[in-house]
């Protein structure tokens, strides 16, 4: 896992666990395929936002 995200505690950065808790409909689908995709765009957005202030 990427460093630091456990402490980010932001409404604009959602971990997979938080996402899954909000989307119970995914519980019975192929989570191993969905998780990396959801997480990937969360991280791409984070990098984009941070690069705007670096």
């Amino acid at each position: 896992m990427l460093g630091g995200e456990d402490k980010m505690d932001s409404k604009y950065y959602i971990t997979w666990e938080e996402y899954l808790a909000d989307h119970p409909e995914l519980e019975r689908k192929s989570k191993q395929a969905i998780e990396p995709k959801i997480q990937k765009y969360e991280d791409i957005m984070f990098t984009f936002i941070m690069d705007l202030v670096l």
Binding site: G3, G4, K7, M8, M50
Partner: peptide, 10 residues
């Protein structure tokens, strides 16, 4: 802000 800087540098 340290956790953000760590994550950004990963």
């Amino acid at each position: 802000v340290l956790p953000l800087m760590i994550k950004k540098g990963t």
